[in-house]
């Protein structure tokens, strides 16, 4: 029982990160129907930004309190990553908006590989650790041990997701985003600045991934391959939830978190993890081709 609760906490922690990254995939898809394969690597870059900024700010000279460093690090990572994503959109994807759709997908794959290999070539393959912003405090309640970091990750993610959901549903920007995703051709006629909305979407998606990246870096190591490793899982989360659907991505993230944590519990060899996750995905797509919350696009004849 205690280990079960323990595992649920672990699953929520991991699922939070997946959900945060999945949001970026899903938002971009929702707005320009592009599978942004580079998003996982954008996430990876964000953890490196967090690593460098965090390490610099934690130096003894500044003597800043941990919480301030944490906030500054997150903000720096968000800003840098958003900028990167906007630049990628502007220079790699935008020229291809009229081109066949696969060209853009291939470009996204290329950009992702570029980011990954560029990081590999410049920074190297060694895993890094983010500095400890806070002393780890472990609580025990009814035999279940959990740390303050775990709580922070789960809580911060939940707040961010609530915030995003509100932005998309309640604000002008959110409305414009939904308008563009609904109909790219009439939206500009209604005075929606499509290009700017697309940039904003990339920026928001990337900054959320950066929040996820910093949180992730607080518990796991950082390396150039994490973009693929974590990115794919987040991507599956988005698809399972119904790509293009924001709430779907959140649900998908938690589902994948649970799959990852509980597969080794149920099946002894942990190498079955991928097998279970991808089989789940395959079966789901066969029986519900548009994910849990996704809607099929109407084909007019």
């Amino acid at each position: 029982m205690q280990t079960l609760v323990q595992q649920v906490l672990n699953a929520l922690q991991l699922g939070s990160v997946y959900a945060l990254i999945a949001l970026g995939y899903t938002m971009v898809y929702g707005i320009i129907t592009l599978i942004n394969f580079a998003h996982g690597d954008i996430f990876m870059v964000s953890t490196y930004v967090a690593f460098f900024v965090g390490t610099a700010l934690m130096s003894q000279l500044l003597r800043l309190p941990g919480i301030v460093v944490f906030v500054l690090t997150v903000l720096a990572a968000m800003f840098a990553t958003a900028l990167l994503a906007v630049l990628i959109e502007r220079f790699a994807y935008k020229p291809l908006r009229q081109a066949p759709r696969v060209s853009a997908v291939i470009t996204a794959l290329g950009v992702g590989l570029f980011l990954e290999n560029f990081t590999l070539a410049t920074i190297g393959p060694d895993p890094r650790f983010l500095p400890k912003f806070f002393p780890v405090v472990t609580f025990t309640m009814g035999g279940v041990a959990f740390s303050n970091i775990q709580i922070i990750i789960i809580a911060v993610s939940a707040v961010v997701m609530l915030l995003l959901d509100t932005i998309v549903r309640r604000t002008m920007v959110g409305m414009a985003m939904r308008a563009v995703s609904w109909d790219k051709f009439t939206a500009p006629l209604m005075g929606v600045p499509v290009d700017r909305i697309i940039s904003i979407t990339f920026a928001i998606g990337a900054s959320i991934a950066a929040i996820g990246g910093t949180l992730f870096g607080m518990v796991y190591t950082v390396d150039p391959y994490m973009g693929i490793r974590i990115g794919w899982w987040a991507f599956i989360s988005a698809v399972v939830g119904g790509i293009g659907n924001i709430r779907g991505a959140m649900i998908g993230g938690y589902i994948l978190g649970f799959v990852e944590i509980f597969t080794p519990v149920i099946l002894p060899a942990s190498t079955y993890r991928d097998f279970v996750a991808f089989s789940l995905l395959l079966v789901l797509l066969i029986f519900r081709p548009y994910g849990i919350l996704g809607r099929p696009v109407a084909q007019k004849v």
């Binding site: 997908v105 698809v239 060899a269 190498t271 097998f275 991808f278 797509l285 066969i286």
Partner: peptide
């Protein structure tokens, strides 16, 4: 081939992706 009857485009791409991952994972096991 069978999923491709109903699933197309991006979703079929994801099916093929899943297939690739499954093969790799089965071989590893």
């Amino acid at each position: 081939a069978f999923p491709s009857f109903r699933t197309r485009g991006d979703y079929l791409a994801i099916v093929t992706l899943a297939w690739n991952m499954i093969v790799k994972s089965v071989l590893e096991n």
